[in-house]
Design a protein around this nucleic acid. Structure first.
Lengths: 339, 339
DNA sequence: TTGTAAGCGTTATCAC
DNA sequence: GTGATAACGCTTACAA
């Protein structure tokens, strides 16, 4: 069965294919009768314009390249979902390539995307430098999501991780906590570094001495956090609260405490970072810094859409906000935590 | 800056563009010297073949259409990730459209995908009938994921939900439980129906009477499950275990019990379905039926790849397997559950 | 308003 | 082996 083309419906409607193209795209006025005939033929054949040919002809592929990072994190998954949703009602479709959070891999992924003549690029996280990006993406409209790339020209949509770390820690301090453990994220990861910076700032601002021994190893996974908290408990260092660099780590911490029969929040309070879906159903429900992941993807894709239509867009710094639930308790004056 | 084409590098290498095409695709032998010159020019210009033009010329877009359903479920997200990963090292790229688990929306999404001349289709879940699919996808290689479409011709990759429901329930029964509540999934959802069928089968097989009052409303969300379990507790009906149609529902159930100070698993046991990442870190770690979500996406995309290369593929029924953790306890002879 | 014809960047079919 | 040249299906000047 031959695929039906614009020419076929032109024949049936007794017009030239230019005219068909015109009604299909609304590029110019066409006599109502002919338009009607064309539309009729279009329906009759169930005609689907060949986007590939169209792209080749006018240079726009109506495709957005999305660079993802397969790290199986609910946060990044939500961003991708947001991107898909944001593009859903536009004529653009997202095409995905994975960068594996690894420079060379990301570069070749972007090149592949460019080979497909995407009209714009959405880069979710990743390890590329601002220079890398500007060099590779040249004049392709590009928006970076979930990461701030220090470059005057690159629009980014990201949350203020320093601030997020700060408000979480401050909340614990306000609740009387002084001996607060911090579960770090991946060592080199900027988000992790920033959240820790926020943690430190809150301490400094409150004039409280930060105990370095309470800064624990982490890598954003629950299992690693569980190990670290286990070790902390065995060290017999005093602590009354834990701030985890992400919710997954908070889950790990929670489990470690559970195993040792340490009550949350009675004996130890916990704050996380992300507010992933499950966090509201932890026992007790987790107090955490909410990152609007899906909204970020959505926002970025719409912004790229604007960019493609010539409207300007400048970086957008979102603030995380503290979701207060039940995993933090005010420290009792005579602390009853284990020592 | 003009984009460099195959013609440009042909000029530099002093050959015709046909020859360039030949070395780029390895379609025919080319004199080593010329080949070298062509490759050199290619690198010099940083030439990226235009996939769009290539597709138009040879009829293959090297693109796989993926129909997703934006339901923000970790299970479906993991499938998408698996698809991306599975295609990562092939020449194919996935392009995503959302069907919103709604027939007409899915149809137009697939049509859009076809308009983009995708070489194959991956349908994740969804509401389309087998007839719908065969009609719309015609002779486009198609694989359905996470759903069995009863049609001789449609290859599917899915897990046996009836069996999953059965083994979970049987496990509870073997542990002495008789009064087992079931939290249903979305009423019309086939997975939900199947898991319930498995639940019933286990009862029947054991000759135990199923108490219909213990079959609770659900919709695969934690919040709904929490409400249902709350209501159950207030009803003062006896129950010693809960089987939730998915992990999210199990989380909701867990929280409801936590609020009423009902111990898990001491007083009530819980089994979930999915084994999403967080489940291993619930307190206590959740015993659940593991669905290999990512593997399914991976498997399906590779299978589609085979299909495109002419190799046959027949439906693959995967079995879920019970991840035994700590949310189930053997029922004490003198039951100490609340009555 | 409409048709003709020239691209868009490749691949594929021929000859040589 | 290699080079013309004709597709591929559409858009878009340019004419009429």
């Amino acid at each position: 069965m031959k695929t039906v083309t614009i020419q076929d419906i032109a024949n049936v409607a007794n017009v030239s294919k230019s005219t068909v193209s015109r009604v299909l795209n609304g590029t110019a006025g066409v006599h109502p009768d002919k338009r009607k005939a064309i539309l009729a033929a279009t329906h009759k054949f169930g005609f689907q314009p060949n986007v590939v040919a169209r792209s080749l002809a006018n240079g726009r592929s109506l495709t957005i390249g999305v660079l993802t990072q397969n790290i199986g994190s609910p946060f990044y998954d939500a961003i991708s979902q947001g991107v898909i949703a944001g593009l859903q009602d536009s004529t653009y479709s997202p095409i995905f390539m994975d960068g594996q959070w690894e420079r060379t891999s990301e570069i070749s992924a972007i090149k592949a995307l460019i080979g497909r003549r995407v009209d714009g690029l959405l880069l979710i996280g990743g390890a590329l430098s601002g220079n890398d990006i500007s060099r590779i993406c040249k004049d392709l409209p590009t928006i970076v999501i979930a990461r701030q790339v220090p470059s005057r020209k690159l629009p980014c949509v990201f949350v203020d991780n320093v601030d997020g770390g700060y408000i979480a820690t401050k909340y614990l301090i306000e609740n009387g906590h002084r001996k607060i453990a911090f579960i770090q994220g991946l060592p080199q990861h900027q988000d992790a570094i920033d959240r820790f910076a926020g943690f430190c700032r809150a301490f400094k601002e409150s004039g409280i001495q930060l105990d370095r021994r309470l800064v624990l190893d982490g890598d954003f996974t629950a299992i690693k956090a569980e190990c670290s908290v286990n070790r902390l408990c065995e060290s017999r260092l005093k602590f009354t609260a834990i701030f985890a660099a992400n919710d997954a780590s908070a889950f790990g911490a929670r489990l470690a405490l559970y195993r040792r029969n340490i009550g949350v929040p009675d004996e130890v309070s916990i704050v996380g970072f992300d507010d992933q879906m499950e966090s509201a159903f932890l026992t007790p429900p987790l107090t955490t810094v909410r990152q609007p992941a899906q909204e970020m993807g959505n926002l970025a894709s719409r912004a790229l859409f604007d960019l493609l239509n010539g409207k300007p867009f400048k970086s957008q710094l979102l603030k995380g906000c503290l979701q207060i639930r039940e995993s933090v308790a005010r420290l009792k004056t005579r602390s009853n935590h284990r020592d």
